[in-house]
Design a protein around this nucleic acid. Structure first.
Length: 405
DNA sequence: CTCCCTTTGAAGACT
DNA sequence: AGTCTTCAAAGGGAG
């Protein structure tokens, strides 16, 4: 498995990526299975879902085309991303295929084949901070009200020894969008209700609506107070580099002491900064951390909810719940859910998940490997961030909650 | 309002 | 060691 060769030195990731993909015969079998699965998709949809779904179920060929397109687009995006990264760097960090699925943290890859990364460099000196300014005000589970104030183009940050390189993407699609683990709307067009935000100003283009809902932080002691005011916050060795708008509309970084706050901060407060809820011990919120009483869901984007949580926590401080890192399939589901919903006009998660499960099996080994790799990085990062955390911490918690203990 | 459903994979618990 | 159980996400549906 080419992309799974960790190159040694990886004692953190589990061996999930070493999945026992069977050999040639199995591959043929898989191909056949793919065809079957894809064909079954229509059947599944018609059998699983309600009548309306049945009536508009596309034929198998259409599904096949859709799936092929889906898979192709994924691969293309992946390639584009790799190309994009490699074009924009001068050969320092990512000589090997860059790890493309982790926009949250552009860290030196400890899995570089030569395994030469020093222990200290196993952790990022530079962190890319995709704070998309998307809030869901007055969110209810059934009717999310989304205020999308995403304003800026994505920025690449590549570590070059002690420098920060910022690479502006020239096209509308964020190159990392295809693999954003926490994104929900990676490929969806900009929502029609998008307010006239800065992205619509001349010279400032807006990337597609992506929920860059999660991100990882530096390890304890890495950073201090972080301003969430910008779409992307770059952190480097105790300094925050705040992207700002240049006259031409491109974002330029400027270094700032963490204690000082750029003017843009006050203009764009971010709900994620409210209160201690979901805060990593560093003071940085993390998608894996959720307030103890609430579901994660969109709460972290719900300013009101966060305020409530803050007040609540002031009254009765509880340990924030650190969630399990997502496995490969969960990451896949996160990415593909919206697509399936759009294609199948389904809304029931149970039915959607069935389809996703079949699609998952229909993926090629390479396509699955990408998600296994993502999940491996996810676990690794989770482990770095929460070294004392164990799945045991949440084990049986749900039952306890139910029983009221 | 709360729980269930449904999927896969990881990891803890149990035998 | 092998098997079982729980939890991650999601959101409509049911009670």
């Amino acid at each position: 498995m080419p992309q799974l060769s960790s190159g040694g030195g990886d004692d953190l990731g589990a061996n999930d990526e070493m999945i026992a993909f069977k050999d040639e015969g199995e591959q043929e079998e898989k191909i056949q299975e793919n065809a079957l699965t894809e064909r079954d998709l229509a059947d599944l949809k018609s059998s699983l879902v309600n009548e309306s779904e049945t009536n508009q179920s596309p034929n198998a060929a259409a599904i096949r085309r859709a799936q092929q397109g889906e898979q192709r687009s994924f691969a293309e995006k992946h390639r584009e991303l790799i190309d994009g990264v490699s074009k924009h760097q001068d050969g320092g960090m990512y000589k090997t295929p860059a790890y493309t699925g982790y926009p949250f943290l552009m860290l030196p890859d400890p899995y570089l084949p030569n395994g030469s990364v020093s222990p200290s460099s196993r952790f990022p000196l530079i962190c890319i901070w995709p704070l998309r300014m998307t809030a869901q005000a007055g969110h209810s589970r059934k009717r999310p009200v989304r205020i999308d104030v995403t304003g800026f183009s994505p920025v690449f940050v590549l570590q070059q020894s002690n420098k920060v390189s910022v690479v502006q993407q020239s096209h509308g699609m964020h190159p990392l969008s295809s693999l954003l683990p926490y994104g929900n709307e990676h490929f969806s067009p900009s929502p029609p209700h998008l307010p006239a935000d800065m992205s619509q100003k001349p010279g400032v283009h807006r990337h597609q609506s992506q929920d860059l809902s999660g991100y990882y932080s530096l390890p304890p002691g890495g950073v201090g107070q972080i301003s969430p005011s910008v779409s992307w916050l770059l952190v480097r060795q105790g300094q925050a580099v705040y992207p700002t708008l240049s006259p031409c509309g491109f974002r330029q970084p400027y270094a700032s002491n963490l204690s000082s706050t750029p003017s843009s901060y006050s203009r764009f407060p971010h709900p994620l900064m409210l209160g201690p809820s979901g805060m990593h011990p560093t003071g940085i919120p993390h998608p894996a951390i959720v307030p103890p009483t609430g579901k994660q869901e969109h709460d972290q984007y719900d300013r009101g909810m966060y305020l409530k949580q803050e007040v609540k926590q002031q009254k009765e401080p509880k340990k924030p719940v650190i969630k399990k890192p997502l496995n490969a399939f969960m990451l896949y589901m996160k990415e593909m859910r919206a697509k399936v919903i759009a294609e199948c006009t389904l809304k029931e998660s149970a039915a959607i998940n069935q389809i996703l499960g079949r699609r998952w099996h229909a993926l090629t080994r390479e396509e699955q490997a990408k998600y296994y790799e993502l999940a491996r990085k996810e676990r690794q990062l989770h482990m770095q961030l929460y070294p004392t955390w164990s799945a045991r911490d949440n084990y049986g918690k749900k039952k306890e909650e139910k029983t009221g203990e």
